[in-house]
Design a protein around this nucleic acid. Structure first.
Lengths: 113, 113
DNA sequence: TTGACATTTGAATAATTATTCAATTATAAT
DNA sequence: ATTATAATTGAATAATTATTCAAATGTCAA
């Protein structure tokens, strides 16, 4: 790492105390990382409209059941989806209310550009 | 790809026509991908509070100027930051108003968990 | 209890991407 | 013109991650 000298100490100090701590930013970027994949985002948007089993999602996205299952696991770990088993099938649904709001705010952002 | 048969055709059809088209979802996931990196997110949050030059950001994040510059380029391409040159320095600022709103909605999401 | 079905799992591969390093461009001062 | 400073660039490396493939788990029906 080359030695770095800031040119506007006042601004740096001001910003340093204004931004969230590193752990918060990390949590937030981890959250965006989850949304930053088209497969996972498609799954989330699908689940906004109906509870679906894994085979339905795989069919919808034209992907293997395995690939979908792996992504569902990420979404589960991130607490964005929940599941229930009924017989042989496992049904997934959104596990979060504000995710809807976030997705619509974000869509607006994209569309306004 | 193993042959996949959906189990709830009605749900699949309902969802198919309800979700945004693939290009829209791709644009949105590209957008989240940009936010899904702690370095870039730190830069954006810093720029919410002050215009900063590259050296300031590098100092703030304790990173090389080069690494920061590369990330600034991504943010520029994504139209999230703008820049102006003044003398030898280049100053970066947010190039988007709703990004603030999005970041605060998202922070709420994280904090409410 | 055997077989079929639905899904998960883990390891391997393929693809993507953040950071480093060295070289280059742009600006200003001497 | 030369030197110093500020930042960008491109190629290489390192690290992360999505998907595939084969095998395993759990459930139900015959």
């Amino acid at each position: 790492m080359n030695e770095i000298t800031p040119h506007h100490i006042e601004n740096v100090k001001k910003v340093q105390q204004a931004i969230p701590d590193y752990n918060t930013i990390t949590d937030l970027s981890d959250f965006f990382k989850i949304l930053g994949d088209s497969t996972r985002l498609q799954i989330l948007m699908a689940l906004e409209h109906a509870e679906l089993c894994v085979s339905d999602i795989a069919y919808l996205l034209n992907m293997t059941v395995s690939a979908v299952s792996h992504q569902l696991k990420s979404l589960k770990t991130a607490k964005l989806v929940k599941l229930r088993r009924d017989g042989k099938s496992i049904y997934y649904a959104l596990d979060d209310d504000h995710i809807n709001k976030l997705l619509s705010v974000s869509l607006e952002h994209i569309e306004e550009k």
